Structures are given as structure tokens and as C-alpha cells.
Computed example of a mutant assay.
Amino acid sequence: MDPADAPYDGFADTFAREAAVSPYNAHYDRPTVLGLLGDVNGLRILDGGCGPGLYLSELAARGADTVGIDQSADMVRLARERLGSLAQIRQHDLDAPLTWAGDASFDIVLLVLVLHYAHDRVRTLTELTRVLRPDGRIIISTSHPTAD
């Protein structure tokens, strides 16, 4: 993996501190996404682009079986530190196939503020749909277009 393709390596700690309390992340996106999910107790959830594990920690506390992936080694480290054994965290690029995940193995897939990093969004969404159960849901949030 080209280091330029992991944009958060090198300043993940600063990002994690800011994302935990920033108005957009802490008071808009995170509560909205978590509210859309409803009761997740017993559901298997894949967080694609889990960052420092802010969403995963809330989902695990609500009883979900959580798996997080992130391209950034630094974000993976932070998520593992935050969650310990409460979630499985893997370093994985959204552009790569999820060879370790079986068909229809997740109830919910989250793509929170990350889809714009995928080079081929159709291929990424196709792969995520493959691992989603037939009655599953994909929840996507993006940053405001004027911020890009």
C-alpha cells in the first residue's frame, strides 16, 4: 500500500481527539447514524473505515458483534486500543475484496464519512453488498459536499 493512500497515518491521534468532540462528528453525524441503526443487540455489523473506533465502541456497548476495517495502520491501532476484545479490527483497504468475509455474513454495513476514499465506488459497494445479508442494510453518511 502506498503511504499516500493512507491519509490519516501520521496524525490519527490528533484526528481521533478532534472527532470525539467536534460539532460535525460528535453532535451531527454520529448521533444521526447511530439513531438510524436502532436496536443493534445481537446484530453483526461491519464498519468500513472505522477510524479510531468511535462508532464501534457505541455499537459494541449496545450489544452488537462488531468488525471494523480501516486502511490506516494508525487508525487500526487506535481502534484496537479503544475496543480491546470488544471488536475485531482489521487493516483493510475498501478498494480490496473482503476475502476474509463470507457471503451474507453481516446484518449492517456502515460507511461513515469514508465512501469518497474508494477509487471505484461501484466495485466497493458491490463487494459490501456481497457480505450483507439479504435483509441487511447499508448506512452511508458523507461529509457536506461544500466541505470537499
Rank of each mutant, 00 (worst) to 15 (best):
S22P: 00
S22I: 07
S22K: 12
P23M: 06
Y24T: 15
Y24S: 14
Y24G: 09
A26P: 06
Y28G: 07
Y28H: 13
Y28D: 13
Y28R: 15
D29K: 02
D29A: 12
R30H: 12
R30G: 10
V33I: 15
V33G: 02
V33C: 06
L34T: 09
G35S: 03
G35Y: 08
L36V: 09
L36N: 11
L37C: 09
L37P: 02
G38K: 08
G38C: 06
G38H: 07
D39N: 13
V40W: 01
N41Y: 06
G42Y: 10
G42N: 11
G42P: 10
R44E: 02
I45W: 02
I45A: 01
L46F: 00
D47L: 00
D47N: 08
G48L: 07
C50E: 02
C50A: 03
C50N: 03
G51W: 05
P52K: 05
G53D: 00
G53K: 05
L56V: 08
L56K: 00
S57H: 10
S57D: 15
E58D: 13
A60K: 02
A60F: 01
A61I: 09
A61P: 07
R62L: 09
A64E: 07
A64P: 08
A64H: 03
A64R: 04
D65V: 11
D65C: 05
V67F: 04
G68Q: 03
I69E: 05
I69K: 04
D70G: 07
D70H: 08
D70M: 05
Q71V: 14
Q71K: 15
Q71P: 05
S72A: 13
A73R: 12
A73K: 07
D74C: 07
V76W: 04
R77K: 14
R77A: 10
A79W: 09
A79D: 00
R80F: 06
R80K: 15
R80S: 12
E81M: 06
E81F: 04
E81K: 02
E81Y: 03
L83G: 07
L83P: 04
G84K: 13
G84L: 12
G84F: 12
S85M: 13
S85Q: 14
L86D: 15
A87G: 06
Q88A: 11
Q88H: 10
I89D: 01
I89F: 00
R90L: 09
R90E: 02
R90I: 05
Q91T: 11
H92N: 06
H92I: 01
D93L: 08
D93P: 03
D93R: 06
D95G: 12
D95I: 05
A96I: 00
P97G: 06
L98G: 04
L98A: 10
T99H: 14
T99W: 10
W100C: 07
W100H: 12
W100A: 12
A101I: 04
A101H: 00
G102S: 15
G102N: 13
D103N: 14
A104D: 13
